[in-house]
Write a protein that binds this DNA or RNA. Structure first.
Lengths: 129, 129
DNA sequence: CTTGACCTTCCACCGCACTGGAAGGTCAAG
DNA sequence: CTTGACCTTCCAGTGCGGTGGAAGGTCAAG
């Protein structure tokens, strides 16, 4: 299958597929006599895996590593579990940070909700931030 | 005050101060005869404002706009309130998204917690993701 | 007078995941 | 034979908030 077909089938673009190849996420496919990339249908599974990994918030570098474990013939289950686990912890930290920030910003906003411009110090920028 | 002093006083770097000037966050300061930047002490307030804005998760572009309103002689309170308000909504969305993602990733992780590599389809990448 | 810390400008680069565009080759339909 | 869709490579740019480094000028202390 040609790159355009694969792009359409996987819901991405030809640009992205070439980029993935260059980034080591997709193996270099066979070529036709005239140099066109000729993908195996199984590449679609690989792309779906990449998409699921991205949906879980993994980076392409992390996904690439899993794929390489797989390509080396090993089952990447353990590696995947570790990645997902550290991702959960990272999400917990991010959520907590954002919630704390939300508190702070809400307080600032409420203080600024009924602004009294006359009370502002003209030498300061804004007393509500 | 010279750029190094201001950097130290504000807890940033000379690089960043020059960058802020180029980015329109700091006005071009006076220069000494030999070309050194010579800042007014009030610049420190401005930098603190920038830092508070960043801490609230505002972008430099947003902060710059507030500063420009201020520089034009107006009180930016109203503008600041709108920014903070939209930031709160943005944070709410981000938090909700991350929480949903955390659910999904946790489920995937738990499914992978006791992996059974033998049950894996060797043609797929990993049945746990 | 020299040393070392400080300052200047300018240009390029970081990560991340692409995206755009130029210049040229290939293929199938009409 | 031409047209237009598709493909190739290569180089460069996006956004964000800086950071690194080179080449050169300035200043105060010893």
């Amino acid at each position: 299958m040609r790159i355009g077909e694969l792009a359409q089938a996987s819901g991405t673009t030809t640009k992205t597929l070439r980029y993935y190849e260059q980034a080591g996420l997709l193996p270099a496919p066979e070529r036709t006599i005239t140099g066109y990339r000729d993908y195996e249908p199984a590449t679609l599974q690989r792309l779906n895996f990449i998409r699921r990994g991205q949906a879980a918030g993994l980076t392409l570098a992390q996904i690439r590593e899993v794929l390489h474990v797989r390509d080396a013939g090993a089952a990447p289950c353990h590696h995947v579990r570790e990645l997902l686990d550290s991702r959960v912890h990272q999400l917990d930290r991010q959520i907590a940070d954002l919630q704390a920030l939300r508190e702070t910003v809400t307080e600032l906003r409420d203080a600024a909700a009924e602004p009294d411009p006359g009370a502002c110090d003209p030498t300061a920028v804004c007393r509500y931030l």
